[in-house]
Amino acid sequence: MNPIVKTVLQRLGLGLVTLFVVSIVIFSAVTLLPGDFATAILGQSATPETVAAFQRQIGLDRPPVLRYLVWIGGVLRGDLGESFSSAGGLGGGHVRTVVSLVVPRLKNTLFLASFAALIAVPLSLALGMLAALYRNSVFDRLVNLVTLTSISVPEFFIAYILMLFLAVRLPIFYSLANVSADTPLLERIARCALPAMTLVLVIVAHMMRMTRAAIINLLASPYIETARLKGVTPGRIIFRHALPNAWAPIATVIAINLAYLIVGVVVVEVVFVYPGIGQLMVDSVSARDIPVVQASALVFAVTYVLLNLLADIVSIVANPRLLRPR
C-alpha cells in the first residue's frame, strides 16, 4: 500500500480511538465524580423519595457500562437525551430534548466562528509572512509588540473595549448580538460584527506569530541558501522553494488557532449575549444541567479533535518525503 494512504488511514484510526476515549471521559466524569447533583437540581427540600425517583428517571440506578452504551448509542443516533431543566418535575411537564437546545445554538456558533475565521486566517497568514520576510524591521518589531500584548489580555477586555468605544460612545455597531433563527443574513452579519471582531483580534495575534515563526524557520533551511546562491530571484524562492514546504506548518498553525477559536468563542458569546453553544454551556453549568453540559462538551471536543486530525492529515499529504517513497 502507498505509505501515504497507510499513514492517513492510521491517523484516521487514531482519531476514531481518540473520539471514543473522549466520549468515555466525558461520560465517566459525570458518573465517577462526587457531584451530588440530584440535590442540586431538586433543591434542598427534596425528599429521599423524589431524589430516588429522579435518579431512576435519568437512569442512575443502572450499571455505568450499560448507561454508557445507551448514551453513546443515543449520541450516534442523534439523540442526546433530555435536559434536566425539564426533568424531575421542575420544568413543569414540557420536555425539552438536548438536541433541540443544542442544534440551533451550534448553528449560531458555527456561523460566528466561520465569520471570524474567514477574516482572521487570510489576514494573519499575510501579516505573518510579511513580518517573516521583513524580519527585524520596524514593522516586524511593532507587530511583535502589538501581538504580544494582544495575546496577553483576556478576551473580555478586548470585547468590552470594542463595545464601549464602537457601540456605546460611537454608536457604529450593535452592542449586543442577540440574533434569532429568523434574523436575515445581513442583519445577522451586522449584529455579529463586534463579537467577530473580538475573535479576529485574538486569533490574528496568535496565528500570525506562529506563521512568522514557521516561515522564518523555513527560510533558514540550507536549501533556501542553496537557491539564493544559485541566483534564484526572491519571488521564486518564496513561491517555488519555500511555499511547497510551508503547507504542513501552516496547516498546523491554522488548526491550532481554529481550535483556540472554539474555546475563545465561549467568553465572547457571553459578553455579547450571543445565543451560541458556548453561552448555552455556561448557563447549563450554572444550572448543573448535566446532559446539556455533556452534549456541549462533546460537541466542542469533537470539533477540536477533528481540527487536529485534519491538520495532521494535511501535513502528511504535504510531506514530499512521504508523498514519494523511496
Binding site: S221, P222, Y223, L229, K230, G231, V232, H241, N245
Partner: peptide
Amino acid sequence: RRRLWGSRIAYVAQSAAASFNPAH
C-alpha cells in the same frame, strides 16, 4: 550579484541532503 551566482560562480555545500529542496 544574483546574476553572477549560479551562472559564473557556483557553490557546493557540505550537506547535500539538507541543501536540496525536498519538494522538487
